[in-house]
Amino acid sequence: MAGVVLRDLAKRFGETRVIEGLDLEIHDGEFMVLVGPSGCGKSTALRMIAGLEEVSGGEILIGGRVVNDVPPKDRDIAMVFQSYALYPHMTVRENLEFGLRIRKTPQAEVDRLVTEAAQVLGIDALLHRKPKELSGGQRQRVALGRAIVRKPSVFLFDEPLSNLDAKLRVQMRAEIKKLQARLGVTTIYVTHDQIEAMTMGNRIAVLNAGKLQQVGAPLELYERPANLFVAAFIGSPPMNFFKARLERGGIAAAGFSLPVPAALRAAAAARDGAAVTVGIRPENVVELGRTPRGESARIPVTVDIAEPLGDEVIVHARAGEDPVVFRQAPHAIPAIGDQLEVQVELDHLHLFDAETQRRL
């Protein structure tokens, strides 16, 4: 096994900077997820680790060895792509064996490794089939098996579940997570889906426009986002935001005001009069009749739409001119245009500097 270190990593295509100054350490045996919107550079970073893209600047270390100029076949990595990239004319067994045969692995060892991988992934009954005879989930398992038989030091996954339907994605992400825990192989997983990132990673690295925004455990990013981008990207439904100003110990927004919670008073006092963005997650906006956690304040909202989901209702409303989303019990679904009051749990407020977008 091996850790992976990115030092001041950069990638440029002509004058276009795709990644700039990326510093990241992935520990031996860790499941690290790179997440961000399309075009943020996460797949490019993965391809540079794999050796499929040249490095424009900085260093990549795998197992303590700088691999910038090492060809992909000598990096001891295995990559699983978004497209399954299976050979259509080969059976499942032949697909699993192919990489081992290229490396002139003895036949007895090939048989052992293929049998072991097929049993781990539950595809041992499919070894005689060709890819066209498999479902999407089965094809993805074969792609995983082809990586497993290599017994590499590092697994690289480039959005491997994007082609699957929603139900199968949930099943496969659980299987990949269990598989990684069983094998203990250092894994770097790229996705644009923050739910995948939250449920799979030991740690998550959030990228935007080629720059690292924050690295941390899933709950750390969720509860203490470093800036406005991370706060907006992590969480479903996403965090609510209100433009406001700090005024004499309070938060003045368009259409309502809130007291500053105790935990933020020191930071707010030093910025009296400053413009801020207030963040509050949907689960911390509580309908009347439910008991809020800790100190709370009421704000009026106007309902735009309600989405019943069976066990709960997602309500989209407006507080002043700002949209606000919250969850409520399904016993009474509000109608469009209803005027309501909701309770904001003040201990869960987030304040961001309006100019720098950094967390206060």
Rank of each mutant, 00 (worst) to 15 (best):
I102M: 13
R271N: 04
V303Y: 06
S162P: 02
L52D: 03
P300S: 09
R318T: 09
A231K: 01
F233D: 00
I299F: 05
A306G: 03
R224A: 15
F256N: 12
G294V: 11
D111W: 15
L183V: 08
V55T: 02
R146Y: 09
T191R: 00
V149I: 03
L219W: 15
V120Y: 00
R173A: 01
P72I: 13
A275D: 15
T291H: 08
R169I: 05
Q339L: 07
A209C: 14
A306L: 04
R182M: 14
F81N: 06
V301N: 00
M239T: 07
Q328H: 14
A329Y: 08
L221F: 01
R93S: 09
N208T: 10
A263D: 02
P238F: 11
E345G: 07
V33M: 09
R173L: 04
G184N: 10
G255R: 11
L96Q: 08
L161M: 02
G122E: 10
N68H: 12
H331V: 13
V324Y: 00
L179A: 07
M172Y: 05
D69N: 15
V190R: 02
L221T: 02
V190A: 06
T16D: 08
K178Y: 07
V170H: 14
L246N: 02
V120R: 00
P261I: 09
V142E: 00
V301I: 04
H348T: 03
E321L: 15
K243V: 06
A197P: 08
D76F: 15
V313I: 03
N227T: 11
L46P: 01
Q140L: 03
A270N: 01
L164Q: 00
H128V: 14
D124H: 09
F352P: 10
M1L: 11
N227S: 12
L212G: 03
G21D: 06
R65E: 03
E59Y: 03
G122C: 08
R281P: 01
R359N: 12
A319D: 12
A274D: 05
Q194N: 04
R248H: 08
K104Q: 10
R146L: 09
S43K: 01
H331W: 14
V4Y: 10
A118I: 05
A354I: 08
H350M: 11
L219E: 14
R93A: 09
E283Y: 06
I234S: 03
F233A: 02
G255Q: 12
D165Q: 04
V344T: 09
Q328T: 14
P323E: 04
S153T: 15
G51A: 06
S135R: 15
E223G: 15
A232V: 05
G29W: 01
P282K: 07
L9D: 01
L360F: 07
V5N: 13
T105Y: 07
T302Q: 05
T302H: 03
L183G: 05
S257P: 04
F242A: 01
I314Y: 07
L168H: 14
A254S: 13
T186Q: 10
F352G: 06
R203H: 14
A244D: 14
A85L: 08
P308C: 08
V55A: 03
H128F: 12
M239N: 05
V344N: 06
E355M: 15
K104L: 06
